[in-house]
């Protein structure tokens, strides 16, 4: 049940987060553009939380119908995005920042 109050609260959150996102990265050296894109991309894998809720609702009562399967695939894809994204960003940053190089 979504009331007007919760909808307005969510829309407010949405709008404020967008403004915050605009302000967060106004000056970024070109070197960091690719890692930043990759890191932000990993964060967009937050849809895993949505997938978890969807899976839980779908599996409720132990039956796994099509929507359960869809939610399962969503969990897997989102986790690939999250774990792969953070790992690859870390690899890139280690190279760019020059750490762990030429030990």
């Amino acid at each position: 049940m979504i009331t007007e109050t919760t909808l307005i609260a969510n829309l407010t959150l949405f709008m404020l987060a967008i403004f915050l996102g605009f302000e967060l990265i106004t000056k970024v050296p070109a070197t960091l553009h690719t890692p930043l894109m990759s890191g932000a991309n990993a964060i967009s894998g937050i849809s895993v939380v949505g997938a978890l809720f969807a899976a839980n609702v779908a599996y409720d009562g132990g039956q796994t119908d099509l929507s359960g399967l869809l939610a399962f695939v969503a969990i897997v894809l989102a986790m690939i995005n999250v774990v792969g994204g953070f790992t690859v960003t870390n690899r890139m940053l280690n190279m760019i920042a020059g750490k762990k190089r030429r030990a």
Binding site: F14, F22, M37, A40, I46, G50
Partner: peptide
Amino acid sequence: GIAAAFTGFIVGNSVLIVAGSLVGASGLIL
């Protein structure tokens, strides 16, 4: 990111909305 924020509205979850819109906005700036 924007797509993730929209799913936040479906399941009514604040962290999805915040993280999704952050990525959406910062991605657009980039």
